[in-house]
Design a protein around this nucleic acid. Structure first.
Lengths: 169, 169
DNA sequence: CATATATGTCAATAACGCTGACTTAATTTT
DNA sequence: AAAATTAAGTCAGCGTTATTGACATATATG
């Protein structure tokens, strides 16, 4: 039973993509990521923040109590790079620092009310864009979108995003 | 006939995504884009170039004879930002400058042999990553991936990437 | 000739990442 | 208890990518 372009079996092996199709995917990623981050960048600019602040706010938001070290391993940047950004967010009261009860070397990071508010605003614009694209594309397309993006991520980091349909965690 | 999660009709309307599913998509985009650009960034660093040089090389490569103004409208950066990067690429003989025959104000940009070689190397690593993800995901998923990413792009810029299956142009 | 367009340039500024060297505090190992 | 390791923070300097604003040059168009 040979595969065809109309075969919708999600476990089918893909036909070998042409160079043109691969270039198309490269361009889709470039333009989609640029526009995906564009609106949030504009909101951040009003606060004097940039994309790096957003990433910290986002990952502290979904991982309340995360330590500095864990944040570094998610973001894959240096301690010194994070320091500037995180320091500003703490100084301006978007992120709160606590101390771990068991290991007092560890700082536990959480969002302040102000931080949660900004996080919600940023996630709202990005979610709205994605929700619109999902609605236009349909459920089957959404599943494919997730499967391919997950396959692009380094295997070592795939555990950072839920498998399957995004319901887990 | 109500939609279900198993409905594979590509024209079906999507069920309203949950906040959790939308956050999952945000994270997929973040990690996938980071890893998608990571290998190319490492190659570029060996040449003393950065991601901005890559974008110029890529879009001059697929649009031989593109003008400076057209490049600016694709990249959506300022003339001054492009100038430094493009100037370096011209100085180091990766990009060639010609003059338009009809309008001698316009510079027609093309890749030199050296530029084509670097472009091929960069596109090769990115294509390999995408091809592997495509192969793992199957044809149906690939179609969904393209549809959703296209929907994320600002409507005004969707014309810059081919519709459908990536065969067009 | 006047104006608009395409490109290029100078100067200053900022966000974000890097390396290297070091400190402090707390925990773990020996 | 001393030594080593770990978590976090800091200081200094550097490079890339992007910004704004002002201005220059060549060419085309009305």
């Amino acid at each position: 039973m040979p595969d065809t372009a109309l075969d919708s079996d999600p476990h089918a092996e893909a036909a070998k993509p042409t160079e043109c199709q691969l270039r198309h995917a490269i361009e889709l990623l470039f333009f989609a990521y640029r526009d995906f981050t564009g609106e949030a960048d504009a909101i951040l600019a009003a606060y004097g923040f940039g994309r790096a602040h957003h990433r910290v706010i986002y990952f502290v938001g979904i991982n309340p109590g995360i330590t500095v070290g864990e944040l570094l391993s998610i973001l894959k940047i240096t301690k010194q790079s994070l320091s500037r950004v995180l320091g500003q967010l703490i100084d301006e009261n978007f992120v709160l620092q606590g101390t771990d009860a068991d290991d007092r070397r560890r700082r536990r990071l959480t969002l302040s009310d102000q931080g949660r508010e900004l996080e919600a605003k940023l996630t709202a614009v990005q979610s709205a864009r994605i929700a619109a694209a999902f609605d236009l594309a349909g459920d089957a397309a959404v599943t494919g979108f997730r499967t391919v993006l997950r396959g692009i991520i380094n295997p070592d980091d795939r555990h950072r995003v839920a498998a399957g349909d995004g319901e887990a965690e």
